[in-house]
Each structure stands twice: as C-alpha cells, then as structure tokens.
Nucleic acid binder design. Sequence first.
DNA 1: AACTGTGAAGTTTTTCACAGCC
DNA 2: GGCTGTGAAAAACTTCACAGTT
Lengths: 211, 211
Amino acid sequence: MASNHENSNIPDIVIGRLPIYLRALNRLSSEGYEITSSHELGQRLGISSAQIRKDLSHFGGFGKQGTGYQIEFLQDKLRKVLHVDREWEVALVGMGDLGKAIAHYKGFADRGFHISACFDSAPDKVGKKIAGFVVQPLSELITVVSERNIQLAMIAVPAEHAQSVANLLVEAGVHGILNYAPINLTVPPHMQVQYIDPVVGLQRMTYYFDE
Amino acid sequence: MASNHENSNIPDIVIGRLPIYLRALNRLSSEGYEITSSHELGQRLGISSAQIRKDLSHFGGFGKQGTGYQIEFLQDKLRKVLHVDREWEVALVGMGDLGKAIAHYKGFADRGFHISACFDSAPDKVGKKIAGFVVQPLSELITVVSERNIQLAMIAVPAEHAQSVANLLVEAGVHGILNYAPINLTVPPHMQVQYIDPVVGLQRMTYYFDE
DNA sequence: AACTGTGAAGTTTTTCACAGCC
DNA sequence: GGCTGTGAAAAACTTCACAGTT
C-alpha cells in the first residue's frame, strides 16, 4: 500500500529514464494510439516491462490493471514529475556554427523549452540577428540572466572557454547547464549539468566493432 | 593475479565511461600535464578514484604504484581499447540545419571520425556542396555505404523519417548509428545505437528544480 | 484473460580497505 | 608517503513472480 511519491528521493537513474518514456509516449500518441502497456513500451525501448512498471510506481499508480496506461494521462503525469508542465527559459551562449544550429532547432519549443537570450563575445556577432535573436555581448550575461531569472543555459563555445562561461552562468544564478563543449565542467554541487558530445557516442560504439 | 583483459566481457557501463576518461586525459594533456592519478581524474569528473582504478584494471595495469598514470600512455591504451587508434568513416544522413551544423563541426576529425558521405532526399539539396561535401541522393545510400564499407552513420532527419533511414542503413551494412532524431529506433540486435537528444538532457535537469 | 504494482530474490555496480610497489 | 590494483563487503539496481484488479 505505502508508496513513496512526493517526498522521498527517487534514484537518478530512474529520473534519467523518464524523458525517454515521455518521448516514446509522444510518439505513440502521434501515431494515434490512446492506450499502451508496460510490455509495449518496453518492446519499443528495449527495456523490460518490469522495469518500466517499477520506475513509474515510484510516483503513484498511473496504470489500470488489466488495461494498461492511458497515454495522454501518463504524458501529463510524467510532464508534472519532470516539471515540464510549464515552459522554461533557456540562455544560449556561443553563436558559432553550433550555436546557430541550436538557435534554429525547432525541437525545443514543442517540448517546453524556449531560448530567450543569446550571447557571444565576438564583436562582429554582437547586435546581429540570428534565427530571430539579437546576439548580446557576454558582458551582459550576468545582468540579463539574473534579471530575467533564467535557470537553464546551453554552452556552445569552444572547449577552452567553456569553464569560464560556466563560471559566469553560476554567478548569474543559473541552476542547470547543457554543455555542448567536449570538456567536463567543474561546478558547485547544487548545479545540474548534462553533456552533449557526439564523439563520446561514437566512441561508445566502436569498442564493439571488430575491425 | 589473474586479470581478464583480452577475452572476457567488460560491462557496458564501464565501456561507457572510457570515452569520458579519454576526454579528460586529452584536456589534461592540452594543459601541459604529463602524469595524473585516479584521484585527480576523479576530482575533475566527479567520479570516485576507486571506480576509475577498477574500470582501468579491466584492461591491464596502466598505472604505476606511488606515481599514478602517464597521460600519453593511458591515452594510447584507451584509444586502442575503444578502437579509436584509427580513423573511422561516417555517413551523414539529412542535410537540414542540423545536418549542416554536423557537417561543419570540427570536433570529429580530431578524435578519429571522418564524415565521408552526406545524403538528403530533397532534390534541391542533392548535388549541392555543403561544408565541402557533395550531397548525394538517399537512393544512393545503400550503394555508396556498402561499397565504401562505411560502418557508422549519423541520422539528422526529422523524427518521422528516422526509422526508415535506419532500416536503409542496416541494409547497407552499417553497424552503428548515432541518432539525432528525437525518437527511439528499432534495429537488429547486432546494431549499436546511441542517441543525441538535447531535450532529454534538459528534462533530466528540470526534475531537480523547485520552481 | 490481461495487465499493474510490488515485495523478495537475484544480479550488477560501487565502495572499502589494504597488500604491494615506487 | 603516495599511489595502484583488487578481493571482499556494501549498496544499488533489475528481474522475478504473483496477488490483486479490471
């Protein structure tokens, strides 16, 4: 009977899978399904059905015995759990090729993230409009981010500048950084950091290749 | 005494950390260091020193008691383990904003990956040169990839086309896919797949945010 | 009949702690 | 004194298997 939603601390590894579940539900939903099961989800994701049920059970009973899970209902619940039942403002630092591509990427808005400020240190970029954003100078970062109470940032600067940008972001009061630079950041313990490094992904695969 | 390098099967989770270690070593090296320790590496990465020692011990004794690890030596060893002591050819499918950004990204070549063919289905892109690559039609994918014996591919097409592109790649004989589309792929068990989804990274952080 | 939610069992992963070496 | 490599212990995570519900 006792379940430990609300207060207790859920393992990070469980939290890490929830966005994957949510993404799969979005897909099922767009394919026109209204109901699914832990078995069906598991098949699609290559995860055991027991694991999915156990993961979800941390937050309460979202399913119906004999039936499965109502997709829309479960999406709502997961969005609430992940705090993406609202829109988050995100700052983007670095407007080189990578930053530009991020600025153009349409996939953020659909899923609750809104780029609301862009920064670069290069004088020839500052003031220009890229993907509809006016590029602001790095010197404005602390003011803009703290005034607007922006909590998330993406770092798309060269590796050698990533740590100093991270330091600025910490000072500005950001709580989470998505780091595209291929380098590990050192940040205070209250900060969240996630890494996007395609080369790490590639290297994780070549290990399994024979030749 | 017995150590199980060569034959035995190393946990995936250990393999997954090796590229992170390699990246940290690259960094230390570029900062001019020649020697490091499991403690120093662990501090930088937020990983315990014992874990780093145990991970490395799967492949043999790379360190020296009392001294630590010679950085260049360890880099070489990890590159061999991960099979990145050579260059890998990679196919890129999808030349929209994202594909273009990937094509322009300089970070692959330094670390052993070379984009050697680009594909798109849009007739207005085929034949054009983007970032030095001539875009080829999707209909050529199987021929080009299998003839050149390309083993790795990156998918940068919209979510709704990602699965059919993956099917083509499997047919063409690719063994690993780095998928930038926000969707899970279903592939035969011998295939490796890694995902790049920045929104998943963001959602993994907002869970920990209060407001 | 089908499926969830969950204790208990089983497995994997991490940490401890120390012998051995530089 | 400082550090690695590693068995043994501890912790974390996953799977099993089934009672309970629709």
